[in-house]
Amino acid sequence: MDKARLLEFLRQMLLIRRFEEKSAEMYARGKIGGFLHLYIGQEATGVGVIAALRPEDHIVTTYREHGHALARGLEPGAIMAELFGKATGVSHGKGGSMHLFDASKNFWGGYAIVAGGMPIAVGLALAAQYRGEARIVLNIFGDGAVNEGEFHEALNLASVWKLPVLFLCENNLYAMGTAIARVSAVPEVYRRAAAYDIPAQRVDGQDVEAVYEAAQAAVEQVRSGRGPYLLEAVTYRFRGHSMADAVLYRTREEEEQWKARDPIELLRRRLEKDGQLTGPELAALQAEAEQVVAAAVAFAEASPPPPPEALYEDVYA
């Protein structure tokens, strides 16, 4: 893979990591309220898959979506402002961390109902097919979604109508504190696709190159009009489910094993080994992430809250 692309992946992953660390800090300082679900540890998945899309493709995702939004190119300042509940936020302060929307980027929302975005993604794909458009829909969900009825309803309809949906399961092994294997008859999510005659693949979600390559193949399949595809990326969230999580349900050893496969470190080592990344280059990327995130926080801080009259705006069109 060419160096420029890998460096771009590294740049995005560093940005997401720094953004999330800063979000946690801002949460601790009371600047961000509610639920905050960090993407730390899972960066390679979102970055690798979203890089395989075109701008006109749609994205429908979950509440763990800051990384997806950043990878999609939503303004970091406007994302942070949304987390702060400010008028300048991507959703004008009315969505919050779990509901980032940017219609101009075809980023159709984070949804906080587990599996709730899946039917909507299928509907966006239906609209594309109805109008004969070439675009596809990326639908991201967690391993917790796969035992919901909406998962099955969505896969079935997408398959029977050959809709252009790339279903991406970010299998981080846990739904809150519940290990997928404890509650799933078939914990290998990709195997479930066979029930709906959907091609599927499992990929190492810590390896951004592998993710990108798998996503490219999947996207090509979906765009060709042959119907949906299910990609399962096995990954791990390094932090708790949300900021309130005491992480009582997994061992520190398991966490250490996974942290040894930090997606950013894996890519950095690979690039350095191949002589494609120098110390100053890495430092520059880190400095850039630091600066972008600092600017995002400054923007969020300086922004006004939504005006009182916004309370009643946009209930109806």
Binding site: H58, V60, W108, G116, M118, P119, I120, A121, V122, G123, L124, A125, L126, A127, A128, Y130, R131, G149, E150, E153, A154, N156, L157, V160
Partner: peptide
């Protein structure tokens, strides 16, 4: 069949896919 769509007995996807299609401008 393009305009008159018989659906599986799956109410959530019936409504949810319509929501998505409506969001896309249909």
């Amino acid at each position: 069949e393009r305009r008159i769509r018989d659906m599986p007995i799956a109410e959530s996807i019936i409504v949810g896919s319509a929501v998505g299609a409506a969001m896309a401008g249909l």
